[in-house]
Design a protein around this nucleic acid. Structure first.
Lengths: 215, 215
DNA sequence: GATTGTGAAAGCGTTCACAGCC
DNA sequence: GGCTGTGAACGCTTTCACAATC
């Protein structure tokens, strides 16, 4: 959040910012901002504030965003195509270094600017392009095989879009984007809204108020 | 998490479960399980445990998952196609009730089992199919217009896949799936691994150990 | 005078421990 | 005896408040 806010401010030409201003932008407490930023080091100036550009650099350094991380996408279907062509990938420091699939019809086609190669060549692709992150964009049944192939190829960070949980050895970082869970959270909000509407409707009917109910 | 674990156990034929067993499965504390479940009501039986099927129903009821929530996908590109055809959508209670786009070439084609209609017809699609959740799968530049159209059509829950933040009136639930943030988290893990490798390498070189460093 | 950096206090979620119940 | 439900204890995160610094 700090990286996003500070980058935006820098784009707007703001060179210096106080914890109070930053807290306002992020909707959090100013003391929390100062304590959070203090973990990076003592980069503020008392009576002045923080240098926006310097802080952006320090946060990027901590997150490992001072250089690019190449990603390989496993699966050249609609999802693989969407991810490889996604505006937020290459532009934000994660260029697509490779796309692999098992479908002969897809191998050789160009997706996201790179030529699709066979899953069996994954290790070669990973090593020649210095790829460090793998993205699984296969159907559920192929996800575990994709994960095993990525681990064999030396990948230690995996982003899983398949609707199934993958098993990996200890030491591998896995993030799962679960669309069903996202929708479940939204459905919970919808359900609460429906409950409120229901309660309001009941209250509006005379004689239906709960007896003895206090404010 | 409880819903997932309990559903899995029910599939396996387990009809009763103790907080201890459930805690073990979820890798959490048994007291936490009991306290969490107590918010649903007192559905356990002392000396026995919880009825798995009953608990699954109660959790689903709380989350609003006892009936289906129809979704409309805005954007029939690769991402829209991937989402509409995603294994975790319809099967998990979120059938795709409509897909809309603005590209004349896409209108009329079939995506995820439904015919693509024009964005201008969104309100009609939403009302005729009783749709309550909108999914934005457009390029960044079109996302705000998509959001405005969804809100105008009466949608109150939006799942945003576009790489930009959308503005909505108060009372609208918005979830954003930010691929760049997912990758940033993985890059942080990679960076830490790289730091550890670096530190190990330095330690391995004789005479490079930090003087006065304790265990 | 303004703002940071940080000990101390407050707040909050988690865990313990046991009374209550089957 | 076994297990739940929950008040109390604990520990971590957030916020306050102010000395240190520009």
């Amino acid at each position: 959040m700090y990286l996003k806010l500070l980058s935006d401010q820098f784009e707007l030409g703001i060179t210096n910012i106080s914890s109070e201003e930053l807290a306002e932008l992020g909707g959090v407490n100013a003391a929390k901002v100062r304590k959070d930023l203090s973990y990076l080091g003592s980069y503020g100036t008392r009576g002045v504030g923080y240098d926006v550009e310097f802080l952006v650099f320090q946060i990027k350094r901590e997150l490992g965003l001072t250089h690019e991380w190449h990603v390989v996408v496993v699966g050249a279907g609609h999802l693989g195509n969407a991810l490889a062509g996604y505006g937020g990938f290459g532009e934000r420091g994660f260029p697509v270094g490779g796309v692999v699939d098992v479908d002969p019809a897809k191998i050789g086609t160009v997706v996201g600017g790179v030529r699709v190669r066979h899953l069996d060549e994954l290790a070669a692709v990973v090593h020649s392009r210095k790829i460090s992150i793998g993205v699984i964009a296969t159907p559920a049944v192929a996800a575990q095989h994709a994960a095993d192939s990525l681990v064999s190829a030396g990948i230690t960070s995996i982003l899983n879009f398949a609707p199934t949980i993958i098993n990996t050895p200890h030491g591998i970082s896995v993030r799962k984007v679960d669309l069903a869970v996202e929708l479940q959270i939204l459905s919970y909000h919808e359900q609460r809204r429906a409950n409120v509407r229901e309660a309001t409707k009941l209250k509006a009917v005379p004689g239906n108020g709960r007896r003895g109910a206090s404010a």
